[in-house]
Design a protein around this nucleic acid. Structure first.
Lengths: 107, 107
DNA sequence: CGGCGCTGTATCGGATTTCTACATAGGGTG
DNA sequence: CACCCTATGTAGAAATCCGATACAGCGCCG
């Protein structure tokens, strides 16, 4: 898990039913294409993400066909857990239990 | 910002007055030394972290001297903001506003 | 007294990941 | 025809992570 990957997962998880495409995710996450597309490919390879070409006539639509991405059921589970771990890492209050200060330096 | 860096900042921010040393942070964050020490060095270079050797006689103490790390005032501010951004990225509910589903694929 | 484990800090090098450019390709506009 | 927009994607350099390894001294055990 890296932060760009987490951003992509968060965007997809915002509405797990809604298919997203690359340019869409670039705007949602703020990631450049050179980061986003490799991430999407890796998520596919991991089986977290399914991809399909939009079935549209580019000429009629007046734009290139999009490649739509949707989290797999496994991807939804995994993404939820990954984000939960991230959340645990960045606590709101100082919930960082454990370990009293270990000792004072000489200063 | 990367996740290991965030872990270090979170550990230091749990009690910003408490000086921490390497092995301490390794246990708190779960990071291996090969990750932690470079992170600490980078944070120092960025001016977020101050470091000082413990002034203790290793023989008397029965252990090696520790190198204590403490967030600078700027480091505290920056760390708080960095963690706040991370938190915003991993929302609890689907607070991921903006952008309705952009369109439906053919499937 | 030799070996092992513990505390502590630290570097090296391979693998992974990020990001700045650039590439491609078609449509619309001035 | 030049230029911008949508859209996906690759190449190469730089940053980063992490397992392995290093070093050094102390204490313990047989």
């Amino acid at each position: 898990m890296t932060i760009p990957v987490a951003k992509v997962l968060a965007a997809l998880l915002a509405d797990p039913e809604a298919p997203r495409y690359g340019l869409d995710l670039m705007k949602l996450t703020g990631l450049p294409s050179g980061t986003l597309y490799p991430v999407l490919h890796r998520l596919q390879a991991a089986g977290w993400l399914a991809a399909d070409w939009e079935e549209v006539d580019p000429v009629a639509a007046g734009r290139p066909a999009r490649r739509y991405y949707l989290l797999t059921p496994e991807g939804v589970r995994a993404a939820r857990q990954a984000l939960a771990e991230l959340r645990a890492l960045a606590p709101d209050g100082r919930a960082w239990g454990g370990a009293e200060p270990t000792g004072a330096p000489a200063w």
